[in-house]
Every structure is written in structure tokens, then in C-alpha cells.
């Protein structure tokens, strides 16, 4: 495999994927719903970092026009991620409201305990 020779040029993507998978692990391994939502937001933030990495250009600057500057970072991913951050907090807010509602109804936010309730009654 040519993994080793690619490390110098792709390390950023790989480390971001490690972060992403940490969030994914929280989502699928923990029954606690707050922890799952935090895992989801970790995953989300890592995807943002991946997109911003795509936009980055070596020796460039931020896409704010200035005299004597030729190379700028790609503005399009920045715009997409600005929108995604705001939409992300909206979905997180709805998820957290659902968690509060579930806690009111069942007295717990552990997924396995709620499933056990269904099984025993």
C-alpha cells in the first residue's frame, strides 16, 4: 500500500477522519442520549473541518480581497459550512428538546433502559 508515501500530503484528511470516527463511535456505542447527541456534534464539527481543509490553499489568504494578494482560499466551502453550522445547531436543539421530552415521559435518557421498559410491561 502507498499509505506511508501519502501521509505527508493527506495527513490532514486522515486525522479529521479519526475525529469523525470518534464521534461515530459515541453515537453507536453509548445508550445515553445526551452523549449520543454530543457524538453527533463531534462528527459534524469534524465534517466542517474536512470541508475547510478542502478549501485551504498553501500560501493563500482568507477570501477577503486585498491589494497585492493573488491566491485566496476557495470561498465556496466556507459559505456551505457557514450554512451547515447554523442548520446543525438547529437540528441539535430539536434533538435536545426530544431528549428532555423523553426524560419527562420515561424518567431516564438511557436507551437500553427505555427498551427494557417496553419488554417487561
Amino acid at each position: 500500500m502507498d499509505f506511508v508515501s501519502n501521509f505527508a500530503t493527506h495527513y490532514n484528511y486522515w486525522l479529521v477522519i479519526v475525529l469523525m470516527m470518534t464521534g461515530f463511535y459515541l453515537v453507536i456505542s453509548r445508550p445515553n442520549m445526551v452523549k449520543q447527541l454530543i457524538g453527533l456534534s463531534l462528527f459534524q464539527a469534524s465534517v466542517f473541518i474536512l470541508y475547510i481543509s478542502f478549501a485551504y490553499v498553501a500560501d493563500g489568504t482568507a477570501p477577503i480581497l486585498a491589494e497585492g494578494q493573488e491566491i485566496y482560499a476557495n470561498p465556496l466551502p466556507h459559505v456551505l459550512i457557514l450554512t451547515a453550522i447554523v442548520v446543525g445547531i438547529a437540528t441539535t436543539a430539536v434533538g435536545l428538546a426530544l431528549v428532555v421530552r423523553i426524560h419527562r415521559a420515561f424518567g431516564t435518557i438511557e436507551e437500553n433502559e427505555i427498551q427494557d421498559m417496553g419488554r417487561h410491561s
Partner: peptide
Amino acid sequence: LDAPDVALTEAAVGVGAATVLMLGTVALTT
């Protein structure tokens, strides 16, 4: 990574708003 606009939004939304919402949820649940 040359994305100051995104950084400002993430700092305001991710650090501020999301943390407050999650703390509220933790206070209301467990």
C-alpha cells in the same frame, strides 16, 4: 486554515449556543 468567517460562526454557535443548550438539557435530565 484561512476561514475567519467560519471560525467566528463556529465560536459563536458551537461554543456559545450549543454549550448553553446542552447544559440546559443536562440540568433538566441527568
